[in-house]
Amino acid sequence: MTTRLSCRDVERMTLEGEDRELSREERGFVEDHLQGCRGCRSFAADRTVIREELAAVRWPPPPDALVHRTRRMLLESGPGARPAAVPGWVMVAMAVVTIVTALWLAVSLADVTPDMTLADLSFTGLAAVLVVIQNALMLLFAPVVLRTFRARRGASESA
């Protein structure tokens, strides 16, 4: 190791010193560098502030409703309580419906151009646009609806 360390090396060694005790030689290099480098002194001081602030944080305990809800969910998802696997024919039917819908959308929207308004669309074209919007809304808001549902369920369980 050379006696001249870059600021990057010193910063990394400062972090390394939190994980293991630096050797006498390493500490010597770091201290020498810190004496002449305001930037690295500032890095070390900021690092101390960050650690002190984080160490002083009092984290909230997990809400009882969440703990009970999760425990119940785990019990329900136990080996004897798992829902039966989806039958193969249902998967095939869903795949067929998806493919048919995609084809129908492709055909229905083939004549639609960006300059058209809703009034210019045929009935089939309008229906296709509505299906696209409905699917997009479902994709975006399903997690929000599920979360609200879970929260209400948890609240009613803890009451």
Binding site: T14, G17, E31, L34, R41, A44, A45, D46, R47, V49
Partner: peptide, 12 residues
């Protein structure tokens, strides 16, 4: 913005 203007204290 929270950094003091004065010289930071040494860590080592």
């Amino acid at each position: 913005e929270f950094r003091p203007a004065k010289e930071p204290r040494p860590v080592f």
